[in-house]
Amino acid sequence: MQHKFESGIEDVAAAVESGREVRGDGPYGILIGDEKLVYRAAVVHSAVVTGAQIVTAAGVADPVEYVAFLVLQGGQLESLRPDEHVDLRSAGAERFVVFRSDRTFRILVDDRTFDWGASRITGATIKRLAGVKAHAHDVWQVLPAGGDHVVGDDDFADLTAPGVERYMIKPILVRVIVNARPREVHKRLLSYWDVVKLAFPDAVPQPNTVYSITYARGPHQNPEGSMVDKQQVWVKDGMTFYVTVTDKS
């Protein structure tokens, strides 16, 4: 997401992206994210800032209960002590994340180590950390005893259990049944025409042709029902669809 700063404010992210040196005098525009990695613009007046100053720039009234992280070029987070200094003129020092927390948690995502400042993290946020396309990938929590399971985009994974939580990013693969035939899809949200083409691959919209769709065994968002044109449904393994075609001519 692009953020615009007023004239006269040095946009640190824009400087880093273009490969030019960050100028020597402020003020400086930086990006500060929350525990969902949603960023907003903030302005600081010194090129060298502390962790405490980053927390204050995030609009926090009581910085004692918060912790700041520097977002490195590879997406990893590096914690900043309140009195630790960061030079914004150094390449990559343009994004930060601030959490309300008194501790950090370590996770592994595809064997890459990330430190996190909250006791929970959503599947969508793990995807952002890993830098993958959310709509094309799933997050799987790897359990020591087996039984790995998907962490949905809006699901919260608990990081407070002993040990380091491990996750894997995999391309989405969902097995559904369409007109009693197994089909594989690579996204978790299907449109009306996605389903029609699973049953009738050559189908195209025609004024005198109507496709009727019913489904069952779906996820909690839509466990069963019917579909009409322009509708979408969430899918899961084992979901069943029945598609019929009617000629109105």
Rank of each mutant, 00 (worst) to 15 (best):
Q2V: 13
Q2A: 11
F5A: 05
A15R: 12
E17K: 11
S18I: 12
G19I: 05
G29S: 08
I30A: 01
L31S: 09
I32S: 00
G33L: 02
D34Y: 04
D34P: 01
A42G: 04
V44T: 08
S46E: 10
I54Q: 04
T56Y: 13
A58I: 06
G59C: 07
E65N: 09
L70W: 12
L70Y: 13
L72A: 10
L72T: 14
G74L: 03
G74H: 11
E78Y: 13
E78S: 09
E78R: 15
S79V: 06
L80R: 02
R81A: 15
D83S: 12
E84L: 06
H85R: 13
E94L: 07
E94R: 15
V98E: 06
V98G: 04
T104V: 14
I107S: 02
V109G: 00
T113G: 02
A118S: 14
I121T: 02
I121F: 09
T122R: 15
A124D: 14
I126N: 00
A130C: 07
G131D: 03
G131M: 06
K133C: 05
A136W: 15
D138E: 13
D138N: 13
D138Y: 11
V139G: 01
W140A: 04
V142F: 03
V142H: 01
L143I: 14
F156S: 09
A157L: 11
D158C: 09
D158K: 09
V164H: 06
I169W: 01
I169M: 03
I169E: 00
P171Q: 08
R175W: 10
V176L: 00
A180V: 14
P182V: 08
V185W: 05
V185F: 02
V185I: 15
H186V: 13
K187I: 02
K187Q: 14
Y192W: 05
D194G: 04
V195T: 00
V196C: 05
A203R: 03
V204E: 10
V204W: 11
P205Q: 15
Q206D: 14
P207A: 08
Q221R: 15
G225P: 04
M227C: 02
V228Q: 12
K230A: 10
M239N: 03
T240H: 11
